[in-house]
């Protein structure tokens, strides 16, 4: 190969390479209507881990959300010192499977944490979250002291102007919101939006200043990368704690996955037999353009195992 030929080939290959990169978005646009990931995936009929395997595959696998070398913060709802059978806390089997997927996708560090209502060590232990997270190689991060929280301004908010927010929410590359769906005595339902109350320090401010409004405004600070709503065992009354005689449970064996936190909650409200509009904070969050509450406009993939 002489010098001229070498240069020619260099230019040719170079042009081809540059051209290919330029074409990629076009390719994506062309391919979109054919196999775009759905806005929301609902899975039914298996163990929580199996539901997640199927759901995350439908969303394009965990690599669509977690890149190699990133830190991941997982926020389950483990606010009460209750075993998984009570349906008050996120299923530990699900937490474990999510951590495993994150590790497979190459996450550098995975943290699991919650600002619990009952005493934190008991909650971490009794819900099975700590054992599950550690078995899968995640760190159980503490959240029981104001030392872990930093003041953050919530952009575009009217009521929740600023809040003390757990540093993992502010710093982690990926935030995965893993609530359990259940009845709530204050808001009628708790799922993805309400679960984020467990990353702030001063919950009393929410209650004092307008609970629904504050819940709706918090994601203005940061929307979770992915929401996974655990609807395996669903508490339909006597929530959120489920320790009183009013507690009633239904076995639903469901899971809802979406990057859209409002859409996820809208679908969840249907599971409890509500319309999305019945839950005050869902239309409020939708008005703040945090997501879409109208399920008819969404591309929903329903999977039955």
């Amino acid at each position: 190969m002489d010098r001229r030929e070498f240069l020619k080939k260099c230019v040719a290959y170079g042009t081809a390479a540059v051209g290919a990169t330029l074409l990629r978005p076009v390719e994506r646009i062309l391919a979109a209507p054919l196999d775009a990931a759905p806005d929301l995936v609902a899975v039914m009929g298996g163990r929580p881990a199996e539901l997640f395997d199927a759901g995350i595959a439908a969303l394009g696998g965990m690599r669509a959300f977690v890149k190699s070398g990133q830190t991941v913060a997982i926020k389950p709802n483990i606010s009460w010192s209750a075993p998984p059978e009570r349906g008050a806390t996120t299923n530990p089997e699900l937490i474990r499977r999510i951590v495993e997927h994150c590790r497979e996708a190459g996450a550098k560090r995975v943290y699991v944490f919650d600002n619990t209502i009952s005493s934190w060590q008991t909650c971490y232990r009794e819900t099975g979250a700590e054992a599950a997270a550690k078995a899968a190689g995640a760190h159980m991060a503490p959240a029981h002291s104001t030392g872990y929280y930093h003041k953050a301004v919530i952009p575009g908010s009217k009521v929740l102007r600023e809040a003390l927010v757990h540093e993992l929410v502010l710093e982690a590359d990926v935030l995965i919101n893993v609530p359990i769906l259940k009845h709530h005595s204050s808001t009628r339902m708790t799922a993805a939006l309400k679960n984020l109350m467990g990353v702030v320090w001063d919950r009393q401010f929410y209650h004092y200043s307008g609970l629904s409004q504050c819940i709706a405004e918090f994601p203005l600070l940061r929307k979770p990368t992915l929401n996974v709503i655990d609807a395996y065992t669903v508490m339909t009354s006597g929530g959120p704690q489920g320790s009183s005689y009013r507690a009633a449970l239904e076995l639903r064996k469901m899971q809802i996955l979406s990057a859209d936190i409002v859409a996820a909650d809208a679908a969840a409200s249907r599971v409890l037999g509500h319309a999305p509009e019945d839950i005050q904070y869902i239309p409020l969050a939708s008005d703040l353009r945090l997501g879409r509450k109208d399920l008819s406009t969404l591309k929903i993939q329903r999977i039955t195992l």
Binding site: A42, M44, G45, E85, R86, T233, G238, G242, S243, S244, Y245, R246, A247, A248, L249, E250, L251, R252, K253, M254, A266, A267, R270, V271, G273, L295, I300, R302
Partner: peptide, 19 residues
């Protein structure tokens, strides 16, 4: 002390998606 209604059926109560 009143006992909670913690009775869970073995099979899912509803087998269709409500949305």
């Amino acid at each position: 002390v009143r006992k909670p209604l913690h009775t869970l059926p073995r099979e899912p109560v509803k087998k269709e998606f409500p949305f």
